[in-house]
Design a protein around this nucleic acid. Structure first.
Lengths: 226, 226
DNA sequence: AGGCTAATGACAGCCGCTGACAGTTGACAA
DNA sequence: TTGTCAACTGTCAGCGGCTGTCATTAGCCT
């Protein structure tokens, strides 16, 4: 639907390789500095309370430069998030094709959470990313964007699932429905985790697994029968 | 989590009763006029392409007045949407308590779509509301807000379901999980409907019913076994 | 009629964001 | 090395969403 312009992102690997030229390296440094400064300010004093001017002052570039790296204030918040999502999609594509849909989805998320740590650290401290995640959950404007992003991923995931099963997404409703239900639980899980105490990655994995285990039972006709 | 301030909304009935004094009636008229003008402009020339100044010029009030009735530009878009959501929640509360959770949810949505027509018409033409729905689905910024609103409703609905079953939402994960899965499918359904041709209310009901019927089958372990 | 108060208008100003233009600095070839 | 080109950046001006403030208007009540 809305693919990013080809030159704006590497679009290949979750952790972009270190670029060759001096110019490219300089760009990366500026971008990373802006990113870190932004996330640090956002998480410490709030998203809306932080002006773009504060961010650029911390990095000592012009406001215009900020908007050349990030289309808007929000985009800075979700730069890392996007890496994680791509990681998930890749993991899903790598699942053995004989797995049932739900099992593949579940395994892909949990695997993704296992391996992203390293990729993230190359850009910002993982702990900062976790605080950012919490910031998103507690800031309505950011939560809204998060939701929209997640439904954009949904369509892509639905197509992957359909392909695995040899189905047409437009002919058979099950791929989209399954992914929609799965995504609903994922979003709810993020909310629960963000509201909780333990902000570790392991905690995230535990909560995720626990909620997913309840998906099928929760849809059973009569809960009291079980 | 974030209840609106008591005086900002009637918060009682989906279709607020006609107020007594001349002052109140005048306020209602101004608000409705702003609402209609806004939706009309939004749906005809796009949300971002419409400035608040254009809206207030059409109604001949000051810009400041617009922002006294609506906290921001978005809120005008979702004023009617909110009526519909409240209607759904009320329908759900009215379901017989012996119904299984999913069945109650399904019946509540379909009933809501049956009865809202009249309530809406008191404020704006139903056809305009339907176009607005489509506008939301095709405008990223609005879709984002829509998503956030829907997860705010989710928690309330989960508590209703839990109460029906005599459960504690924090102790038993199934209410939240079931509602999350259900909501995921609902959102996806709205997206499908908005992308389709038939913008009628009946079409909405048909699509909704069809997608919900697929929820349980879609989560079955092996689709090929069926 | 006249005082009280809610609703409105007018104005100034902040902040996010964009277009245009000019200056600077790496890249690359002669 | 040097000159040219293209990319990156800073500066400035300006729009649109949104808010605070204060004076003005207009329904309400005695």
């Amino acid at each position: 639907m809305t693919p990013p312009p080809p030159e704006s992102k590497p679009a290949s690997s979750p952790a972009p390789a270190p670029p060759a030229g001096l110019r490219e390296r300089k760009k990366r440094r500026t971008r990373d500095a802006l990113l870190r400064a932004a996330l640090e300010l956002f998480t410490s004093q709030g998203y809306e309370q932080t002006t773009v001017d504060e961010i650029v002052d911390a990095v000592d570039v012009s406001q215009r430069t900020f908007f050349r790296y990030f289309a808007n204030k929000e985009e800075a918040v979700f730069a890392v998030q996007e890496m994680v999502e791509r990681q998930f999609v890749e993991q899903l594509r790598a699942r053995p094709p004989h797995e049932p849909p739900l099992q593949a989805l579940r395994a892909a998320v949990l695997d993704a959470w296992n391996t992203i740590g390293d990729s993230i650290e190359q850009v910002v401290p993982v702990e900062l990313h976790m605080r950012t995640f919490q910031l998103i959950e507690s800031t309505p404007a950011l939560l809204a964007v998060q939701m929209r992003r997640s439904i954009e991923t949904e369509e892509e995931v639905a197509r992957i699932i359909a392909a695995r099963e040899g189905l047409d997404v437009d002919a058979d409703p099950r791929p989209r429905v399954a992914v929609a239900a799965f995504s609903g639980v994922m979003r709810m899980t993020g909310r629960l985790w963000g509201a909780g105490e333990d902000l570790s990655v392991e905690s995230m994995r535990v909560v995720t697994a626990a909620q997913l285990d309840e998906l099928v039972p929760a849809l059973a006709g009569d809960w009291r029968a079980g």
